[in-house]
């Protein structure tokens, strides 16, 4: 059974969360890793190519960072954020992107079911949470998204870089002023949900998890990169040909 690391980094600063995700793609030889995390302060993350002017919530006074994955903006407030990272040629990432989503979301649905949450793939239907003009990830959906009662519950995205994959996502616990109409899990707290997801994902993906702390190399990467992820230069310069600050 493959061995994966389990990281839990609660209430990290938004830029640090993004830098640790980037470290999963860039540090050579890093073991496959499942991470659960939350954000302090609450923040808005923009997709890699998203323009600030296309996201009205970015003008609402929230701290804003830009993710290294694409898609729409996410309000990281009442939610559990998760990431899986590892080599692109090994399960669950191998093969086409869509196939890897199917595997990961099936595992996540199985994990959520152990917590009494009956999520399912969206398929061809339209969602109550599909809202135009907000630029928010949870207000747009695709067939592979996990939904609950016709509303989007999990927003996910991947970055693929030099043979490694980062798949991260947000499991929404409660709606917010800029994320209205989304699925909610009343009374559920992020850490309790993480514990259930840890057991569920381990079983569904057939992996053995070993609890760990971020390594010295990861922490050095975070220190070097966290300020750039939250910098105005990076956040404002959405679109094309920005480079990555190095």
């Amino acid at each position: 059974m493959p061995h994966w690391r389990l990281l839990e980094t609660w209430d990290w600063a938004p830029g640090a969360n993004m830098a640790l995700d980037e470290a999963q793609l860039e540090i050579a030889g890093l073991a496959p890793t499942l991470r659960f995390y939350t954000w302090r302060p609450d923040a808005l993350s923009l997709g890699w190519f998203q323009r600030v002017e296309d996201v009205p919530a970015a003008r609402g006074g929230l701290l804003v960072v830009r993710r290294l994955t694409g898609g729409g903006a996410i309000h990281h407030a009442a939610e559990l954020t998760y990431s899986l990272a590892g080599p692109a040629d090994a399960p669950p990432f191998d093969g086409p992107v869509a196939r890897s989503y199917e595997r990961i979301h099936a595992a996540l649905a199985a994990a959520l079911a152990t917590f009494g949450v009956a999520s399912e793939l969206r398929g061809a239907r339209r969602l109550t949470s599909d809202l135009a003009g907000t630029g928010m990830c949870f207000h747009a959906s695709s067939a592979l998204d996990l939904v609950l009662d016709g509303r989007k519950l999990v927003g996910s995205a991947q970055r693929r870089r030099r043979g490694r994959v980062l798949h991260h996502g947000s499991i929404k616990l409660r709606a917010s002023a800029c994320e209205t109409a989304v699925a909610e899990l009343p009374g559920v707290e992020a850490r309790a949900l993480a514990a259930a997801c840890e057991r569920g994902l381990s079983g569904a993906l057939g992996i053995e998890l070993e609890r760990a702390e971020p390594s010295a190399a990861e922490l050095a990467h975070v220190r070097a990169r966290e300020h750039w992820y939250a910098s105005a230069a990076h956040v404002l310069a959405g679109g094309r040909r920005r480079g990555d600050g190095r």
Binding site: L68, Y101, A157, R160, R162
Partner: peptide, 15 residues
């Protein structure tokens, strides 16, 4: 071996 661009699909960004 260096990244010269990026391509985005509905669910992934690839170098």
């Amino acid at each position: 071996g260096e990244t010269f661009g990026e391509i985005e699909s509905v669910k992934a960004v690839e170098d």
